[in-house]
Design a protein around this nucleic acid. Structure first.
Length: 576
RNA sequence: GCCGAUGUAGCUCAGUUGGUCAGAGCAGCUGAUUUGUAAUCAGCUGGUCGGGGGUUCGAAUCCCUCCAUCGGCUCCA
């Protein structure tokens, strides 16, 4: 066997060493599987003993020993009978299942010391070739990833070619922890979620609310520019509405129980679309009116299983930056192109420029709508992506049953991918609601409907933003843009005057008029990540100036207030 | 929902085998200080130890249960 020493190989081999160590320490271990993954590797085990963090240390030490032993990885091939009997002998029921599943004639094994594992390889030459590794965590994981199956214990770890890479990876994990939006959210007093109010429900504190307001204000302004009309719909709707839309049939698991008012059931909305459609149908529509573009920051509530909740990134009540475009077949291409461009532009403004775009097409089996509709829609989506020269991945058959879609994912600080923008066709709802418009030939026609969100959900997007900026919101988004710090009581009037002047210029300014020393005030201002701190003391008062300290650029020295205001205005407009 | 871990003042955490163990720092408040670029000093107020139930003469500590959070899995129209 040739040994291709890729990071993947190294990690896969390290997973074997992990399994070997665990087997040595816990002889009753039944092995699951143990692949390499993008951040390292894992191995699943069925062990009676509940693994703890301290067990991890013990296992890691044993792994170090195995590495020191420099045992060879020996390759061998067994036929099915031999493979099965070997695994039976070792009571490896999961491996037996794998052998049966694979249905091949021959099976390759790798042996390292007394440890042998079913594996297609490749592997490193011997265990001594592992230069740097670390076990990271234990977690539960279903056998074969199915909820129906038994839950095994999974150990995560990582490995690198050298200690330096490992260290920098671990540092990155530390860094990511510091950026965690849940931590920063508390430190910067942006939001909270409490046991008292309910899991997955967000309290937007004034500072967070301020930033949200700026985001939403910008969002609205841009939507008007892009030819959208704003819409508001209620939080609950009659059962019949959701029956017509199909949500009570298809989405019921995610919906909360109804409230009964005068013998009518009302459901809290999990989506905004039905309301927009009802409005569309409010009057006879002519092709001359299309496209109709309705945008709404609509707050929806969905049941999410308790174990899936995660800070702002997965919640039960959230506000979609939703819109529905209802148009004629002729308009589909233009609308999609415009929407995709809009989406990318919007994400760019918030500092995101790394995207993973997925184009999902018609599922093989369950779907609604006609073939030519799907083709036209898919063509529009693909053409738009290509026109903008964006790389994308094709997810053949990955579309929803009601239409094809584009999903845009961005990466957060910890390398997790989060879906923000989505642009999806819907062939289902126009049918169900019998939507129509009168064409130029005087006949009633069925419009195309496009459902789209650019930021996805405000809550999730805010969480991603916090991590992206590490809490250092750019000037235009910062809740407090300038904090004025007076040196002593003698400068208080002058300092307050400065604040008032800044406020008059629509600059979000605040004052720290406590009787603390300037060092303390600066420390506090830095901790709060305020973009600009202004020091006002005797010198400034005498010279009629301010001393500016920028969060990102350090001390900018003494300048006139007018000069400072123009810097702020300039940077705000440019969104830096 | 599932597996595991965790839950002590607003925050970060101490609390040895159940018996002055309800504590510290920061924050907050009150005073003093009037300060020149990352923590001025002093005093004070904060907690049914996540909720409920149980064992015990006695529970933050042991048991049960519920809730929430964390790491994952699963799910993600």
């Amino acid at each position: 066997m040739t040994v291709a020493m890729t990071l993947e190989t190294l990690r896969h081999s390290t997973a074997h060493v992990l399994a070997q160590a665990v087997t040595e320490l816990y002889p009753d271990t039944i092995l699951g599987t143990g692949p390499s993954i993008s951040t390292g590797f894992y191995y699943d085990f069925d062990i009676k003993h509940k693994l703890t963090q301290s067990d991890l240390n013990r296992i890691e030490n044993r792994m170090q020993e195995i590495v020191k032993r420099k045992t060879q990885f020996e390759y061998s091939v067994l036929d099915k009978q031999e493979a099965l009997s070997l695994m039976r002998e070792k009571n490896q029921i999961y491996k037996i299942e794998l052998i049966e599943d694979l249905g091949a004639a021959d099976f390759s094994f790798y042996k390292c010391g007394s440890f042998i594992d079913l594996c297609k390889g490749p592997h490193i030459k011997d265990s001594g070739e592992i230069p740097a590794f670390k076990l990271l965590s234990v977690a539960g994981a279903y056998w074969k990833g199915s909820e129906e199956n038994k839950m095994l214990q999974r150990i995560y770890g990582t490995a690198f070619f050298n200690k330096k890479d490992l260290r920098s990876y671990l540092n990155r994990l530390e860094e990511a922890k510091k950026r965690d939006h849940r931590v920063l959210g508390r430190e910067l007093d942006l939001f909270s979620m409490t046991e008292e109010t309910g899991a997955g429900l967000v309290l937007w504190h004034p500072r967070g609310a301020c930033i949200r307001d700026i985001i939403e204000g910008y969002w609205k302004k841009e939507h008007y520019k892009a030819g959208y009309e704003l819409f508001y719909s209620p939080h609950i709707g009659l059962a019949d509405l959701w029956k017509t839309s199909g949500h009570l049939d298809f989405y019921n698991d995610n919906m909360y129980s109804p409230v009964n008012i005068e013998n009518h059931d009302f459901y809290i909305k999990p989506m905004n679309c039905p309301f927009h459609i009802v409005y569309y149908k409010n009057t006879n529509r002519s092709y001359r009116e299309l496209p109709v573009r309705l945008a709404e920051l609509g707050t929806v509530y969905r049941y999410e299983r308790s174990g899936t909740l995660h800070g702002l990134l997965r919640v039960r009540g959230f506000t979609q930056d939703d819109a529905h475009i209802i148009c004629t077949p002729d308009q589909v291409h233009d609308e999609i192109l415009q929407t995709l461009k809009f989406s990318i532009d919007m994400l760019n403004v918030f500092g995101f420029d790394k995207f993973n775009i997925f184009l999902s097409t018609k599922p093989a089996e369950k779907y609604v709508g006609k073939q030519d509709q799907w083709e036209k829609a898919q063509d529009a989506l693909k053409t738009a992506i290509e026109t903008l020269n964006l790389p994308f991945q094709l997810d053949e058959g990955g579309g929803a049953f009601y239409g094809p879609k584009i999903d845009i994912k961005i990466e957060d600080a910890i390398g997790r991918e989060w879906q923000c923008s989505t642009i999806q066709f819907d062939f289902n709802l126009p049918e169900r609601f019998n939507m129509s418009y009168v064409g130029s030939d005087g006949n009633k026609k069925r419009p195309y409907m496009i459902h789209r969100a650019l930021l996805g959900a405000i809550e999730r997007f805010f969480g991603i933003l916090i991590e992206h900026y590490a809490g250092k919101f750019p000037l235009w988004l910062a809740s407090t843009q300038v904090k004025v710090l007076n040196i002593s009581e003698h400068n208080l009037d002058y300092s307050r005057e400065i604040v008032e002047k800044l406020k008059k210029e629509d600059i979000r300014a605040d004052i720290d008029d406590s009787s603390e020393k300037i060092g303390y005030k600066i420390r506090l201002g830095i901790k709060q990540k305020v973009p600009y701190l202004i020091v006002t003391g005797r010198n400034e008062q005498d010279n009629n100036t301010v001393s500016v300290r920028s969060r990102d650029e350090g001390d900018l020295g003494e300048m006139t207030l007018d000069k400072f205001i123009s810097i702020i205005k300039n940077n705000t407009v440019n969104k830096v």
